[in-house]
Design a protein around this nucleic acid. Structure first.
Length: 620
RNA sequence: CGGGGUGUAGCGCAGUUUGGUAGCGCGCCUCGUUCGGGACGAGGAGGUCGAAGGUUCAAAUCCUUUCACCCCGACCA
């Protein structure tokens, strides 16, 4: 550090309260940034390769990584944004232990639900402990002993902390590790609606999450996810959009509606059972071919011309069968079937279904009538006429006889009046896919995208409070189970997702908000005292303006320094060398700019950088 | 948990079929020449060949056992 920098630091250290943040200045030679030309052989995902190559992370064990200085700085920036948004939304930070006694799971049985994914640790006395995967039990236990009156609620508490999950298969570097950094928040309420209710906090969290990821400079989608125990839109996932994402999401290009595959609704699709038969029912011997693909290939019938018939069993107190029918190339969505029939159900036990008379693997819609079941047909399967071709629909389906299928199935002829009875309904019961009509805009088609889940908020209801006996007295003196919400952000995963979303052939391209340093001062001749003095002065001025600055003071060849600069992805590069100095300036180049950049006069550098930083804010 | 694969220098790899005392590229150290997009020359350091046991005069190499890691699938509040 130069004397000027030291003096400035000393000055800011003297004041007890600062209203503006002074940026950091760091010399490359005094930190650890071990860049490499080659990525480890086992890395596949772009973020994994680049984070290792750029010296952000190093593998310690399967799914366990060191966060090196650059990574730690970026994680700090993500955490800072999260803290600001959480605090602004009325949540309060605390810290719980990473380890917890296994006894805490006694009431919720989550140790069983989690199974082998729960890291277990036995201490010297033989006590069973767990490394926490999340903290519902710990915080509920805390609240149980600290909150006894409705007057103390609502509350929303959060922490940023390392979490553990003994994944079967850790992969893709930071995207799915066994140890990861997470922000988890838990809110507590006496009611769902109105002031102080769960719904209110949930909406605040949804806004806070949207603000957080927007400020991080991420391109993301908010998608409706599987409903929680309360139902409705009780759960949202925040997905960073990128090709390499593990999760598939569907979006309506006109309304912004987005949902994951499980949850996505499909817009109106007309249906009509009427239409002439395409021929007499023709039974075909299809030995041991129970799958659509096998039968399709064998009978030379395309899967969209087949009916896929799934047998489900009612899973509440009442007994009963449900036969769900979709087109051969579609997938039955159990959740949607459940919503359509109005009672819980599950895939039928094969033995029981066979005993009841279903030829499992060779079932046709006719079985609903002959065996006695509620028939639910997806609109795309409920067609007597092929609309596109304007002629009767050709259907192949099971023969309700082991090892046989039939061709020329016709809804009217083969099902008769059963279709008009209360035991036959048509409803959206399949998974959505790209090209399906949007449920929110007539004429719009859903598009498919991929993403990495970085945030998830949901309404827990009273699952944990009931299980653990967290009851609080309300105004009338009654003791009620507290209603909870829970809100998570994968902090370390956000770091990796950002790299997945934003990189090029040369390396990482950080958004300004998450970059470990905003600017990199690349000094060409580090043994030239005058040049170094310029670098220190420029860095100091930038730091005063709030920029975090890294000075590349390594005595290395220009080529490798430029390559490293691109690799670690600092947004602004200032090159200090003879060429620009002769013109009284330095070279200014954004990571996203091609070429060598432009010469900017010394006195204009800070202004030029501020301009770039602000432009970056706005374009996100 | 099923299928496939890999463990040799910090990283990337060859050598294993056919046993003979360990090599290449990058990186690192020293010296010199270089110096605006991963320089060149000369010299040098660095390896219990994942571990244990066995066969053999001799094992990275053959045999047995074991451990670790990766990829695909299944799974994933």
């Amino acid at each position: 550090m130069t004397t000027t920098t030291q003096t400035r630091n000393a000055e800011s250290a003297r004041s007890t309260i600062t209203t503006r943040r002074r940026g950091d200045v760091q010399r490359w030679s005094l930190t650890l940034i071990p860049t490499t030309k080659e990525a480890p052989a086992d890395a596949e995902a772009p973020s994994h390769k680049l984070l290792v190559r750029a010296g952000f992370i190093r593998r310690v064990g399967a799914g366990i990584y060191d966060y090196l200085p650059l990574a730690w700085r970026t994680l700090g920036k993500i955490s800072d944004i999260i803290r600001q948004e959480m605090n602004a939304a009325g949540a309060c930070e605390m810290l719980m232990p990473a380890m917890e006694p296994l006894e805490l799971f006694a009431d919720t049985k989550r140790d069983i639900d989690y199974g082998d994914n729960l890291f277990r640790v036995t201490d010297r006395h033989g006590r069973a402990n767990a490394l926490a995967p999340t903290h519902e039990e710990v915080i509920t236990e805390l609240m149980k002993g600290s909150v006894a009156s409705y007057k103390q609620l609502p509350l929303n508490l959060y922490q940023i902390q390392t979490k553990f999950r003994d994944e079967f298969r850790p992969r893709s570097g930071l995207l799915r590790g066994r140890e990861f950094i997470m922000k988890d928040a838990y809110s507590f309420h006496m009611k769902l609606e109105g002031a102080g209710g769960l719904d209110e906090t949930y909406e605040k969290m949804r806004t806070a999450y949207t603000n957080t990821f927007t400020r991080c400079g991420l391109d993301f989608s908010v998608v409706e996810a599987e409903a929680g125990p309360i139902g409705g839109s009780a759960s949202h996932e925040f997905m960073v959009n990128c090709e390499t994402g593990e999760d598939i999401i569907l979006k309506c290009p006109e309304t912004g509606y987005a949902a994951n595959v499980e949850k996505c609704e499909i817009g109106h699709r007309p249906h009509d059972f009427s239409g002439d038969p395409t021929g007499d029912l023709e039974k075909v011997h299809t030995p041991k071919m129970a799958s659509i693909e096998d039968v399709s290939r064998f009978m030379k019938v395309k899967s969209p011309n087949m009916l896929k018939t799934i047998v489900l069993a009612r899973s509440d107190e009442q007994r009963g069968w449900v036969v769900a029918v979709v087109r051969g190339d579609h997938e039955v969505n159990e959740g949607k079937v459940k919503d359509a029939v109005g009672f819980p159900l599950a895939m039928a036990d094969e033995a029981e279904a066979k005993a009841a008379g279903f030829a499992i693997g060779f079932v046709s819609p006719r079985a609903a009538r002959s065996v006695g079941a509620l028939l639910v047909v997806d609109p795309d399967a409920a067609q007597g006429t092929d609309r596109d071709k304007g002629k009767p629909s050709f259907w192949a389906t099971g023969a309700d006889e082991v090892d046989h299928h039939v061709k020329h199935f016709n809804w009217r002829r083969d099902m008769g009046e059963f279709l008009d009875s209360d035991n036959a309904i048509v409803a959206d019961i399949r998974n959505a896919r790209a090209g399906d009509p949007s449920p929110r805009a007539v004429g719009a088609a859903l598009t498919e995208g991929r993403g990495v889940e970085v945030g998830h908020i949901f309404k827990l209801g009273t699952k944990y409070s009931r299980a653990m006996g967290f009851l609080v007295q309300d105004e009338s003196g009654d003791r009620n189970a507290v209603i909870m919400g829970c809100y998570g952000i994968g902090v370390s995963r956000t770091l990796a997702a950002c790299v997945e979303m934003s990189h090029d052939d040369n390396g990482i391209v950080w958004p300004m908000a998450l970059a470990p340093y905003h600017a990199l001062v690349t000094v060409m001749k580090v043994d030239n005292a005058e040049h170094m003095a310029h670098a220190d002065r420029i860095a100091g001025e930038l730091a005063d303006a709030g920029f975090d600055v890294l000075i590349d003071d390594r005595d290395d060849r220009p080529g490798s320094k430029f390559k490293d600069a691109d690799l670690i992805g600092i947004p602004i590069r200032l090159t200090l060398g003879d060429k620009a100095l002769e013109q009284g300036g330095v070279e200014f180049k954004l990571r996203t700019d091609p070429g060598k950049g432009e010469v900017v006069a010394m006195e204009s550098i800070v202004g030029r950088c501020l301009e770039a930083a602000n432009a970056a804010e706005h374009c996100r």
